[in-house]
């Protein structure tokens, strides 16, 4: 059974206009996406800014309200749960944010930051709590005395580790990681990514990995969904997507990854140009007359594409 099943999820925001500020239209931030997460896998949600990937992640954790659709977590629809019921599930779903500077409360020390979810869900004596926090801090590779320090005393990579420790505190099953390394330097990025892979094995975590960086997605993810304007254009395994992209938008995204071989740079440039041409000449195969993506169609057991 899959851990999480998302069915036709929509998140719309009203646009108001006219004299009486009536709702004239909607921003379709997320416009009908469906996917499944299997326990233990890493699922990548990729797309450019404004494609709805972050909104989707936030809807899953309840930070954005879903307009319609189902989000079945272990069979229970998160969207239909009351606030109180939902609380039980928030334990199992945790989030790691992009900016380790602003997602940690600067006035709390590490002990209080990491203990916060514990205090919300578990009744521990101060001693037990301290032990748990020390354990977590050691697990993310920070020194024991760092629990009395404040976020500004850490580097970006260390701060992201604190964010991860906080997410791990309640032994979650699913972690939604929203651009977890985008604000970090390459070498620090590597640290955090390696570490995320290690704890995945150790705690049997499932990741929903949201990113705009196709290199990182390729490195981290088993299966990938490509988002564009609130919808999926393609879904498949990493090798489906990278070795056999079908949708012109996916092709465009992959061709946009900088070429690491200096000698092939003009080749790459021409590839991009020919894809742009394809985009124009075969537009009707990929978008309907309103410029909307088609529904996903299966092209193999693992691979689906939004094509005519």
């Amino acid at each position: 059974m899959s851990l999480l099943t998302v069915n036709d999820l929509k998140v719309h925001y009203p646009i108001r206009g006219g004299f009486f500020r009536k709702v004239v239209d909607h921003v379709r931030a997320v416009d009908g996406i469906s996917f499944e997460l299997q326990p233990g896998e890493t699922y990548g949600l990729v797309g450019e800014s404004g494609c709805g990937k972050t909104t989707s992640g936030r809807a899953l954790i309840g930070l954005n309200k879903a307009t319609s659709g189902e989000m079945l977590f272990e069979g229970k629809d998160l969207a239909k749960l009351s606030r109180a019921e939902r609380r039980n599930y928030t334990k199992d779903i945790q989030m790691i944010f992009q900016d380790p500077y602003s997602s940690l409360n600067g006035r709390k020390n590490v002990l209080n930051i990491i203990a916060e979810p514990l205090r919300n869900f578990e009744r521990l004596s101060p001693k037990e709590e301290l032990l748990r926090v020390q354990e977590l801090v050691a697990r993310v590779g920070l020194s024991p005395e760092s629990i009395y320090k404040y976020p500004h005393q850490f580097s970006g990579g260390q701060r992201q580790r604190i964010g991860i420790a906080r997410a791990l505190a309640l032994n979650p099953k699913l972690i939604i990681a929203d651009e977890p390394v985008s604000a970090l330097d390459v070498s620090v990025q590597a640290q955090v990514l390696n570490f995320m892979q290690e704890i995945q094995e150790e705690f049997n975590l499932t990741y929903l990995f949201i990113s705009h960086d196709l290199g990182i997605i390729q490195h981290m993810c088993d299966r990938i969904g490509i988002m564009y304007r609130g919808r999926f254009v393609e879904e498949g395994t990493a090798s489906d997507i990278y070795n056999n992209p079908q949708h012109v938008y996916t092709k465009r995204l992959i061709a946009a990854i900088p070429e690491m071989n200096p000698e092939k740079r003009f080749e790459k440039m021409h590839l991009r140009q020919s894809i742009n041409q394809e985009y124009q000449t075969e537009y009707n195969n990929y978008f309907d007359k309103d410029g909307r993506m088609f529904d996903l169609k299966r092209v193999s057991d693992t691979h689906s594409v939004a094509m005519l």
Binding site: A190, N194, D213, L214, G215, I216, Q218, H219, M260
Partner: peptide, 11 residues
């Protein structure tokens, strides 16, 4: 750099 590595190699 992740894109220099094939699959899930450690960085």
């Amino acid at each position: 750099i992740p894109s220099n590595m094939e699959g899930k190699e450690k960085l």
